[in-house]
Design a protein around this nucleic acid. Structure first.
Length: 637
RNA sequence: UGGGGUGUAGCCAAGCGGUAAGGCAGCGGGUUUUGAUCCCGUCACGCGCAGGUUCGAAUCCUGCCACCCCAGCCA
């Protein structure tokens, strides 16, 4: 990992604390942990936490555990634990030893619960959830002690045992810590330690009928694992006194310390697992890994590299204030990374045909005899009858066009000037054989980095993007740096061409552009007076490959999709961008792209960054997802 | 309303009593066979507000204001 990706300095307040703890000898080896609950997929917010925890461990020569905080089986699934492990690995992190589970420690927690009962610091409470809430009071009202608060140690022990054995209904009883019903910190008003949940667990099966709460588990998990610095987000700040209360009242092997930092929020992005799950369940998106999802697997499928995600997270300071980072900053990190690593290629998203009428890139004859048509023409010069054999409809059309425009003066001319034909002699007759000639041009895969060369077949029949052509010659050169009727433009990596004519259908739609190339302009500037307006991309219509391109936009058209409306309701579904996905099925890519490996990323020049779809791309049917557009300072002007 | 947290440019922020880093976005210019990249320049007489301490305050003190989190048997 490069130094750019990992914060190297004592760059934030947590790193400062760790640095001091190490210098003072309080901490000998740093141990951190990333503790997700397996109740959904990891998203960009988790990526920040992963980078902080693993990053700090790496920075200070410590280790970071991956631990599933699986204390609530009603929300958890094995699918999520598998996905989380895969995502952490994909991000490029290696956890310490084996994966751990809170459920590994359930027996120990139970012993500790009994310990607290014996100490008179915990009791079984029969209040219903509603009653519990009433008794707890509110911000302005002190709580009242539960009528069950005074139960004897023996009774509590017995009741807890019977809760464990499944003798009571879900919700009938809980085990509570006896702390302070009048604390100004609501968290300390006799918090629940165990609840009855007669449900099987993805790790422990049917062994347990009671499960510990987060509060009764987290600090002890950290202590058991020897975690030295337990880093979490700000919303747990109120829990810190409770975290410490359990550690102080239990015979734990170590005393970890909790530190909090501000959660990462991104504009135009949802980072609530519950709401993301709703998008999946309501089929708003195709799944947790839909390319519009802010999940790690969604970003991956979208083409965001692990490296880009890491540098984005590491560039964000670890601070207490929790602001909203502009998605533009994330996109910028992604472009920055992809610009430096992605091979360049050409793809025409909205094709219009362009015929280069004077293309002379003749090479070998390559005819499928089934395509050959024969017909007789009179040589205009010698008045001799000649048998033409025309290979394809396209070639035939070119001949016809040139005849109509008086571009042929003789057979020789047809052969030499058009360059798209070859003369053969057969049984004393001149036989003209046309094929689709091509010239193989070579272009670097990257303008600055040596990523090798790619082969670009240039042919008489090309596709260019509809938006790259205009008939309006009054457009200024500054405003329209593309192809204009009667003017010159450079085909990227190939010739300078001039648009001579357009052919339209009955509806007035342009179906074909006739153009002529300026010979000798591959890698060379054209003669004086033929200055191209700009550079456009192209793909050979005969050698290129048809492809599907999926274009994505942000899922929400509101900068804060979770924000509340005037009624105090948060209806993020209202802010859905219904044009967040478009599938283009008639795109054309340069031939080499068909064999791209799934998940390989490219910059389609002048368009943006794209990735071969992880699941759907294959060489028979290329499928690319748009990762991001190129920075466009012109569109705004 | 009780408790906890946070306020520095459009956004994220550094700053730890010595005279406002950096990134994103923007703006102006240069290079360019990608309207990209790259390069140069520009962008807070000001640090939520009001007082106070000090030779000196974004940093310390007092008061006020705004926003976020907490009243799950979720994490």
């Amino acid at each position: 990992m490069s130094s750019q990706e990992t914060p190297s300095q004592v760059s934030n307040f947590i790193a400062q604390i760790i640095d001091e703890d190490i210098k003072s000898g309080k901490t000998s080896q740093l141990v951190t942990r990333f503790p997700p609950e397996p109740n959904g997929y990891l998203h960009i917010g988790h990526a920040k936490s992963i980078c902080v925890n693993f990053g700090l461990a790496e920075q200070f020569g410590g280790v970071c555990n991956l631990r599933f905080d699986d204390t609530n089986p009603s929300k958890e699934e094995q699918e999520f634990v598998d996905a989380i492990k895969a995502d952490v690995r994909w991000l490029g992190f290696e956890w310490n030893d084996e994966v751990r589970y809170a459920s590994d420690y359930f027996d120990q927690f139970y012993d500790w619960a009994q310990h607290l009962i014996r100490e008179g610091k915990a009791y079984v409470c029969d209040l219903s959830p509603e009653q519990t809430s009433d008794y707890r009071g509110d911000y302005n009202t002190l709580g009242k002690p539960s009528p069950y608060r005074g139960r004897s140690v023996e009774e509590n022990l017995d009741l807890l045992e019977r809760m464990k054995n499944g003798e009571f209904e879900d919700g009938a009883k809980v085990l509570r810590a006896k702390i302070d019903m009048t604390s100004p910190n609501m968290i300390l008003r006799d918090p629940v330690m165990y609840r009855i949940l007669r449900q099987s667990h993805h790790q422990t099966g049917d062994k347990w009928n009671i499960y510990p709460t987060y509060d009764f588990a987290h600090g002890q998990e950290d202590a058991i694992e020897g975690v030295t610095h337990s880093i979490c987000t700000m919303e747990f700040a109120d829990h810190k006194p409770l975290y410490e209360w359990f550690l102080d009242n239990l015979p734990v092997p170590a005393k970890p310390a909790q530190y909090e930092f501000g959660r990462l929020n991104l504009s135009y992005t949802l980072t609530s697992k519950r709401k993301l799950k709703q998008l999946v369940d309501d089929n708003v998106v195709s799944g947790w890994d839909d390319p519009r999802m802010p999940t790690i697997s969604g970003l991956r499928r979208r083409g965001f590299s692990a490296h880009a995600i890491r540098s984005f997270c590491n560039a964000l300071p670890v601070a207490k204030a929790g602001g909203v980072v502009d998605v533009a900053q994330f996109e910028s990190a992604v472009r920055d990374d992809l610009d430096k690593s992605a091979p360049r290629a050409m793809c025409v998203l909205d094709p219009v045909k362009l015929i280069v009428t004077n293309f002379g890139g003749l090479n070998q004859v390559n005819i499928n005899t089934a395509d050959v048509n024969e017909f007789i023409r009179v040589d205009p010069k010698t008045k001799k009858k000649v048998l033409y054999r025309i290979a394809t409809e396209k070639a035939k059309a070119i001949i016809k066009y040139r005849e109509e425009h008086g571009l042929f003066e003789s057979i020789d001319d047809l052969v030499n000037v058009s360059g798209i034909a070859e003369t053969l002699v057969e049984k004393n007759r001149d036989v003209l054989v046309l094929n689709d000639p091509k010239e193989i041009l070579s272009a670097p895969a990257h303008p600055k980095i040596d990523l090798g060369e790619r082969q670009l077949p240039f042919t008489a029949e090309l596709y260019i993007d509809r938006a790259d052509f205009s008939e309006d010659s009054t457009l200024s050169r500054k405003k329209f740096k593309r192809l204009v009727l009667g003017e010159y433009v450079r085909l990227r990596g190939a010739y300078v061409i001039k648009a001579d004519d357009v052919i339209k259908d009955d509806a007035g739609e342009i179906v074909e552009i006739k153009a002529s190339l300026v010979p000798g302009t591959v890698g060379e500037n054209p003669p004086e007076g033929m200055k191209p307006r700009g550079v456009i991309h192209w793909v050979s219509a005969t050698e290129g490959r048809q492809a599907t391109v999926r274009v994505y936009d942000r899922l929400f058209n509101h900068p804060a999709p979770e924000s509340k409306d005037e009624n105090g309701e948060s209806d993020f579904m209202q802010h859905l961008n219904h044009e967040s996905f478009r599938q283009l099925d008639n795109c054309w890519v340069e031939p080499g792209l068909a064999s791209a490996a799934p998940e390989s990323g490219f910059q389609f020049e002048r368009e943006g960054y794209f990735v071969a779809d992880r699941y759907d791309h294959c060489s028979d049917k290329p499928v690319f997802n748009m990762t991001s557009g190129l920075r466009d300072t012109w569109a705004n002007k």
